[in-house]
Design a protein around this nucleic acid. Sequence first.
DNA 1: TTGAAAGCGCTAACAC
DNA 2: GTGTTAGCGCTTTCAA
Lengths: 344, 344
Amino acid sequence: MSGIPVRPRLKDIAAATGFSTNTVSLALRQSPLVTEETRKVIAEVARELRYRPNEIAKSLVQRQTRSIGLILTNILNPILTQTAEAVELALSRRGYALLLATSSTMVEQEKRALEGFSGRQVDGVLIYPAHHGQLDHIAGLRRLGVPVVLLATEGHAGIDVVSFRDREGAYMATRHLLELGHRRIGMLDGGKPAGSGEKSAGYSQALAEYGIALDPQLLRPIGGYAPGFGYRGMDELMALRAPPTAVFASNDALAAGVLDWCSRNGRQVPGDISVVGFDNIELAAYFSTPLTTIAYDPQAMARMAVERLLSLIENGEQAAGRPQRQAVEPRIIIRESTAPPRAG
Amino acid sequence: MSGIPVRPRLKDIAAATGFSTNTVSLALRQSPLVTEETRKVIAEVARELRYRPNEIAKSLVQRQTRSIGLILTNILNPILTQTAEAVELALSRRGYALLLATSSTMVEQEKRALEGFSGRQVDGVLIYPAHHGQLDHIAGLRRLGVPVVLLATEGHAGIDVVSFRDREGAYMATRHLLELGHRRIGMLDGGKPAGSGEKSAGYSQALAEYGIALDPQLLRPIGGYAPGFGYRGMDELMALRAPPTAVFASNDALAAGVLDWCSRNGRQVPGDISVVGFDNIELAAYFSTPLTTIAYDPQAMARMAVERLLSLIENGEQAAGRPQRQAVEPRIIIRESTAPPRAG
DNA sequence: TTGAAAGCGCTAACAC
DNA sequence: GTGTTAGCGCTTTCAA
């Protein structure tokens, strides 16, 4: 019977072929320094032994792991899921491995994940930060020589960023409703640090351009992005003395809750109430009323971010000059959930 | 100004404190062999230098990386997304890092990912296989000494598995429709190797128990899981001479397409047609008609799988005895999309 | 209680 | 063309 299935090392191939480990190493890496013939012999034995190089050992000497770390707040958000998938694809195409961690939107957990990555010597980090206000620990990583690219709504001094313009997206959504003639427009903001978000800023900006004063009762922080929050938000919004004729929900799941509220309370969409979502999840086109929403291209975003990160890694980070900011533009997808308000 | 921000090594701390690298290593790992006092001195300097151990070097000598690899077919499937998230959580709690790869349901890509993991010396692998029929390369890994746990519908000789019973879930869905009185029940099967799946087996079994012959026209492989496939599947199904009174869609996205077809073609759900989905995605409760569907607990599944994998890793794999099979039971969530067929 | 030496599996520099 | 030597940053004997 054959030997114990221990992982063979270069040394084992060397012993079996009579060459030195160095020659074996060279041969296996297709070095032109090695004869065609020796290479064949060595390759053959390597195959027989099922040799697989130990990347850990390689990493130690080469001081690079060909792995990058990705930190997301959570993977459940469809936009982040798509981003993760696209990042993985782009990375594996380039021969990089992906280490994944989640922060649960907590800076402490984010820090821990970052330290873990750093200890594991990742060549770079892609991060969707837990809080846009607290980026210093990330900048610190960067200063330590680890290339970092932010996936975020805003930038930060000293760090590269690929941003999806939440603010502009929200602006487009609100503006669309304004152009249809709506003047009382509610917004359901699922963001955690309530109201502080980019989306509410875009909403406010659009209103301001139309000379409409911001009614704080219409801008509701609801504390979460699940459909149930949207449903409850509608309860509040529609209980107002002057309820809105249109609602901008800060993501599509919320909008699903809004649509559900409408159908359970006998309101037509878009007849009685117009609804705009955010994210353009796959199912948005299949809601009870196909949803008008804001779309990004998370794939494009992921590609840009990976591209930039790998260039920072491979062309020397500092050499790449000052931090670069790129953005993917949102666009509005108009479906059937928006229409002019009922006359009168 | 302070020095260059190079990553300090044990040696640097040794030089700074006057102790040997060995003592520093011991001290930093809280060895009782080292004096309280020396430990303090060393810890202090380590802090000042912002020392972080190089896990790669540690891995090389300890022959373990404290990382595990997770291979999924894709992350977009909500069930897999939830699984990935739960796996990440469970793992990070235990101090393990997660390497993530996707196979795109292609065995070749799966093999490549597996080799990548193996080269990177992961301590174990969790895998949702691309094809249940082709598991030999995975068993091979296992034989190489790498602990593996399958996330799958079926088991395989020689590999541990945590299975979600697709077959049983489909059986429950179909049985529910039969109990309501439906006798012509269509099934839309999104699975890739058409019709070969566990779900269609469960469907057939339920029919058989009711003495209903399988009508091949009613069991439609549709080639994908996106809502559009469900829509087109309905086009076919309802064009039959004897169309079904109920439809079992093999996932919830498909069911969304089915509901859409019904609303666009003037059929009431559940009045004219009953619909059952599969997966119980968050939005299923918010579809135009809240969807009756089959639910798992992906979190429980992930926990079981991680638990088992870590026990294989930490208690010595072979020692753990013969491969263990565990399963999470599906359950049916009855909402508003199913009802008895119209009389006559 | 601390230090010296060896070695994890590999690549890189330099001989020959 | 191929072999020898050293060393990546750490842990692990084994001495002292």
